[in-house]
């Protein structure tokens, strides 16, 4: 039983990080119909911003982390929007998908060639101490990750639901035409979404890298997980992506422990297919209607 609880806590901690990536994924889809195949690389990159800040500019870790978040908002938010997404918006979904696949390769290989092909140790914000007793291990690391990630998500949820800008962003996501008629500055709201995605990716990166190590190729797995979490949750709902993230984190751990470690990757995907078949709008999503 203690094992089970330990696994749930570990699953929640990693799930919270998946949720951060999945929420960003969903936000981009909502406001700009961008299926971002580089989302995993977006989570990989900020850790290297931070490491570069420490290594080449001698910044202390907290400052470097802050710089990494700001730089991510600039590069993965602003530059991504204006240089990659905007020129392709008119071309439809598929060229943009291909372009993000290209971007994923670019980021991955770019980090490999300019920084290192090897995994890098990454500092943690939290001390590596056991908060539990001898038989029951809960590390401060896990609790810290869980609190910070969940806090970030709650903050975002509050921002979207309770501030004027947040509600305008939601309006933009749901119906840009109507939003524009109602006087919402749609372009600015879309830009905000990209900024938020950049910041969320950076948060996920800083939280996950102490456990996963920073490596150029780690985005492949992370991207797939974020993608699955977003679809499981409904793909068009921030709430769904949050639930999807936690669910994938927990299921992964429980399956590996109690079912099969060689097929652990298959279970979240099987869940995905089941949900598509039985509840196409996702766990918490709503049906999209086709505009004719």
């Amino acid at each position: 039983m203690t094992d089970f609880i330990q696994l749930i806590i570990a699953g929640l901690a990693t799930g919270a990080i998946y949720a951060l990536a999945a929420v960003g994924f969903t936000l981009l889809w909502q406001t700009s119909q961008t299926i971002n195949f580089a989302q995993g690389e977006f989570v990989m990159l900020p850790a290297f911003f931070c490491l570069a800040g420490i290594k080449f500019f001698g910044l202390p870790f907290p400052i470097a982390a802050l710089v990494a978040i700001l730089l991510s908002m600039l590069v993965l938010g602003v530059i991504f929007k204006f240089a990659v997404v905007d020129p392709l918006m008119k071309q439809g979904t598929l060229p943009l998908v291909i372009s993000t696949i290209g971007l994923a390769i670019l980021l991955r290989e770019g980090v490999k060639e300019t920084y290192s092909a090897e995994a890098q140790r990454f500092p943690s914000f939290f001390p590596n101490v056991n908060l539990g007793t001898a038989g029951f291990n809960v590390s401060a690391d896990q609790v810290g990750v869980l609190i910070v990630a969940t806090g970030t998500i709650l903050l975002l949820a509050w921002f979207l639901a309770s501030t004027k800008t947040g509600r305008q962003m939601q309006a933009t996501a749901q119906n840009p035409t109507v939003a524009r008629i109602l006087g919402v500055n749609v372009e600015r709201m879309v830009l905000y979404t990209f900024l938020i995605n950049g910041a969320l990716a950076a948060m996920a990166s800083l939280l996950i890298s102490p456990i996963y190590l920073a490596k150029f190729s780690s985005g492949e797995t992370l991207g797939l997980v974020a993608f699955v979490a977003a679809i499981v949750g409904g793909f068009n709902q921030v709430r769904g992506a949050i639930v999807g993230g936690f669910l994938v984190g927990i299921i992964d751990n429980l399956v590996a422990a109690y079912v099969s470690s060689t097929y652990r990757q298959a279970v979240p995907l099987a869940l995905l297919v089941l949900i598509i078949l039985l509840r196409p709008q996702g766990l918490l999503g709503r049906a999209e209607e086709r505009a004719v």
């Binding site: 392709l88 943009l96 291909i98 290209g102």
Partner: peptide, 20 residues
């Protein structure tokens, strides 16, 4: 050598942007 994939990725992105 190692920059092959970087060149490849850039070419694909440029192609998509200017000639989908």
């Amino acid at each position: 050598e190692g920059f092959y994939l970087i060149i490849f990725a850039l070419l694909v992105m440029l192609l998509m942007a200017f000639c989908p």
